[in-house]
Nucleic acid binder design. Structure first.
Length: 877
DNA sequence: GCGGATCAC
DNA sequence: TATGGTGATCCGC
């Protein structure tokens, strides 16, 4: 019995992890032997157990699907069949066989580059990566079952002689640039998929090619002594590498060289005018330029081209003729797993229905229509007809940016917060390079059992700086820590992602945005103008199993390492994050007010700012330690020193594992439930509204519990500074700045470093900026009066910038007619007409669907802002 | 909008 | 000793 369970488990694991000899160079291997070794190396590990769990989940999905299948009636099936026929007919009508789509894929790219640069590796089994993970392997190693995405230590068991070379992305990027230069000669709008892969549309080139003189289709061999057709395996010498092919260069050699001639140009080869010849020429040029080989597929659409490029790998090409007959024959026995977008799980689900090839897909379409989602079915039916994208999409804007890191178990809160802070810093740096700002921050966690969790929060404004991102990520992390307490979170990976990027307008000056809004009929080319297609009503079983398909490989944006390159290709202009934005009248007026406010406060900030310098230098050094250890060995993450502010954070979260700080009353709210927390804030805001001119600013310490108070006094080293500050403070003094009142805080206790600044808005509601909460806290804590989030900075300029951003967002919302932040009924009323007049219908619709909480709506995060009336007129009155 | 899951490279 | 990082999409809530 036990044996049986064990073997079932092993089968389950192998379903996911076993060698698939799909991959080129993997045919005819001793599968059983290889799988046995993989199993022995994996069994009992946490990874193994997690894979089993996932396998079971997949099986449950299949079971559910099979149950549904059993309930399908003949009638339903017939009806679906009619529908399928209709769909197929429509699709057939739209079939376009006129394009010449090429998919190029470098052979074992990273490994090939390393072999080129280190000839000793040529005859050895080698792989690129680390003992933890391999990126790719050469063909020699593949004979042993060593493949990409396999951990190096297992690969070593399969092939003890395996040489593992660490990755060198700079090098691959450089080679990739060379290849892409060639791609651009055939299709200037080619689409890179990764460093070593791209889709090209050869249609236009072929048209032009017909009238190209033979000389323009003639290319020299890089090394003249090598006869045509043989592979170039010698390493490139420096002086040779500069020899370039004749085509597309202002080459003087107008007359074709004779094959095998030893003249100045060396041996030449003349390429014909057909698509095969053109692709062969491109591959030839790649090889001459880089000494690396590429494979290519030629077909009338991208889906087929991708499959074709795999057909004659390595160093080969395959052309699928552009006829319906040829396409359908090609598809006939093609395993579904070969289709881009159908992965392990989808394959398994389809297999469970008896579908293994694309022709099965066509035969079972009616069934699939009843069992799968509309998106999936659409993809399936297209695949079954051999259809795919016939035009290569232009550069698409990225939708998210993230950074994540795997490390040895990390369980201490302060270390986790510190790491989180670093990830945010790295991410902010990357985002700055592309001038991105996003509204959604997502924290990703993987525990030591390989269980992955994501936690996201969407803000009403876009964030970009480390402080802004960390402010959110930190809260998300703390929440998870608290949820797990008293057990610690035992992490092996942490990641931070920012998405929901603002449109280019949001990144550019406010003035432009406003003008854009006010110009009737002009589309404000923002992300919100790109509205997703509304899904039509589904005509299927209500609870269908879903297969998550990647409808088109091209939809995937560039991988991170290509982002830079992409932006060089694309427009990218005028989007620098450090660009000083032109300010609108509104912005200037408001900024001035804030500056006055901040200047006043900051005269009391010198002490803090000095401390900030210390903090900054500490975190810089810790960044380096991670940076280097990450690059050298990802699994050797060393915990950096905590910055002072992070230590404070850590200790705070330790002291109060179940609480969040209310930005209004500054009491700790004993919950980790955001809804509860929001309700609390709502109550506070209501209180603040009903009790103007007091209470938000409390000059006694009753807000803090005794324990908190004691903590605060432990630090003590800032006493001197505190005293100076106290001298500068006038208790209860209010300063008015154009309708915004600032009341400087007072400190009744010597050691109390609490300094609160109340903004009293036109409607007499108090917004509080909170300064350091405790003596040992070297970084003051600012709570944004607009978004109410703790801003993890003690730099007033940064904080000021953040508040500005928030306010700007609100102004934008106002102008768009999104009235989230107003409580003024008239604003709601007005906005409706504005929506119609000024915005494209989708946008108006979006605003409508998004934020029309009825008055009876329960308190929510969105509602919490209702206490502040940040309408334009109120702000700038 | 969120979270889990799948997929590609 | 040891199983990645980045980006995208889909689906069910």
């Amino acid at each position: 019995m036990e044996n049986k369970t064990a073997s079932t488990k092993e089968e389950g694991f192998l379903t996911r992890m076993a060698l698939n000899d799909n991959k080129a160079g993997m045919e005819g291997l001793d599968r059983d032997k290889i799988n046995k070794i993989i199993m022995e190396a994996s069994k009992g590990s946490r990874f193994y157990e997690n894979e089993l769990k996932r396998e079971q989940q997949a099986n449950q999905r299949i079971e559910k699907m099979m149950l549904q299948k059993a309930q399908i009636t003949e009638q339903q099936l017939n009806k679906a069949q009619v529908q399928v026929k209709k769909m197929a007919l429509a699709l057939e009508k739209s079939r376009d066989l006129s394009r010449m789509i090429v998919h190029v894929d470098m052979d074992a790219f990273y490994a090939a580059v390393e072999m080129r640069d280190c000839p000793e590796l040529k005859d050895k089994p080698m792989a690129v990566g680390s003992m933890s993970m391999l990126s790719t392997s050469n063909y020699h190693a593949r004979k042993y079952g060593v493949r990409a995405a396999m951990p190096g230590f297992i690969a070593k068991k399969l092939c003890p002689n395996l040489v593992i070379v660490p990755t060198n992305f700079d090098k691959y990027r450089a080679v990739s640039d060379e290849i892409r230069e060639i791609f651009a000669d055939y299709d200037p709008h080619f689409q890179p998929v990764s460093l070593d892969e791209a889709y090209l549309d050869f249609t236009d080139h072929l048209e032009q090619r017909q009238s190209l003189p033979e000389s323009a289709r003639t290319h020299r061999y890089r090394i003249s002594s090598i006869a045509a057709g043989t592979k170039l395996i010698e390493p490139l010498k420096k002086e040779e590498s500069d020899l370039s092919p004749v085509l597309f260069e202002d080459s003087p050699s107008s007359s074709p060289c004779l094959l095998g001639s030893d003249g100045a140009g060396g041996a030449c080869e003349v390429f014909g005018t057909s698509v095969e010849e053109a692709v062969r020429e491109m591959r030839f040029r790649i090889e001459q330029k880089t000494t690396l080989t590429a494979s290519a597929g030629i077909a009338p659409n991208m889906m087929l081209a991708k499959v074709c490029s795999d057909k004659n790998k390595p160093n080969g090409q395959y052309r699928l003729p552009p006829t319906r007959k040829a396409v359908m024959e090609f598809i006939q026995n093609l395993p579904v797993r070969k289709i881009c977008g159908i992965g392990k799980v989808s394959e398994k689900m389809l297999n469970a229905l008896g579908i293994t090839t694309c022709s099965h897909l066509g035969q079972q379409m009616a069934l699939l229509l009843l069992l799968f989602s509309e998106t999936s079915c659409h993809h399936f039916i297209e695949v079954s007809l051999g259809l795919g994208s016939t035009h290569i999409p232009r550069h698409e804007e990225r939708k998210s940016m993230s950074t994540e890191r795997t490390f040895k178990e990390l369980s201490k809160t302060e270390e986790q917060l510190s790491l989180c802070s670093e990830l945010c810093e790295d991410l902010a740096e990357d985002m700055k390079k592309e001038g991105l700002k996003g509204k959604t921050v997502t924290l990703k966690l993987k525990n030591v059992n390989f269980e992955v969790k994501t936690r996201a929060q969407t803000l009403p404004y876009a964030v970009a700086t480390k402080e802004e991102i960390f402010a959110v990520a930190k809260d998300l992390l703390k929440m998870e820590i608290e949820n797990e307490s008293p057990q610690p979170l035992r992490l092996r990976l942490m990641g931070v992602r920012v998405s929901a990027f603002s449109s280019s307008d949001d990144k550019t000056p406010m003035q432009k945005s406003i003008i854009g809004f006010l110009q009737p009929g002009r589309t404000n080319c923002s992300d919100s103008s790109k509205v997703k297609h509304q899904k039509p009503e589904k005509e299927r079983l209500s609870d269908h199993p879903s297969v998550l398909l990647q409808p088109s490989p091209v939809k995937n944006g560039p991988k991170k390492e290509e982002a830079h390159w992409q932006s060089e290709q694309g427009d990218s202009g005028g989007r620098q994050a450090d660009e000083k934005p032109q300010q609108s009248f509104f912005q200037r007026a408001h900024a001035k007010r804030l500056q006055l406010l901040v200047a006043d406060v900051s005269t009391q900030q010198d002490g803090y700012e000095k401390n900030m310098c210390v903090t900054a230098s500490v975190s810089t050094s810790s960044e380096e330690s991670v940076e280097s250890s990450t690059k050298a060995n990802k699994n050797n993450y060393s915990v950096p020193e905590l910055s002072t502010s992070d230590q404070n954070l850590a200790s705070m979260s330790h002291a109060r594992p179940q609480s969040l700080t209310c930005p209004v009353c500054f009491n700790q709210v004993d919950t980790n439930d955001l809804n509860v927390f929001n309700t609390h804030i709502d109550v506070c805001l209501n209180d603040a509204a009903s009790k103007p001119k007091e209470s938000t600013f409390s000059d006694e310490e009753s807000d803090l519990d005794p324990e908190e108070e004691r903590h605060e006094c432990e630090g003590g080293q800032r006493q001197g500074e505190e005293e100076v500050e106290e001298e500068q403070l006038t208790n209860g003094e209010e300063l008015e700045f154009g309708g915004v009142y600032v009341r400087k805080g007072q400190c009744s206790l010597k050691n109390n470093s609490v300094q609160k600044v109340s903004l009293i808005k036109g409607d007499n509601k108090h917004v509080t900026l909170q300064q350091p909460q405790s003596c040992h806290s070297k970084s003051p804590v600012f709570v944004c009066p607009v978004c109410h989030l703790t801003q993890d900075t003690d730099d007033l300029t940064v904080f000021n910038h953040h508040v500005d951003l928030c306010l700007n967002q609100e102004v934008l919302h106002e102008l768009k007619g999104q009235t989230t932040f107003t409580i003024n009924p008239p604003a709601v009323k007005n906005s409706k007409t504005e929506e119609r007049g000024l915005f494209p219908p989708q946008q108006a619709g979006k605003g409508k669907s998004k934020r029309r909480d009825s008055p009876s709506s329960p308190p929510s995060k969105k509602a919490k802002s209702h206490g502040f009336c940040n309408t334009i007129d109120k702000f700038f009155r």
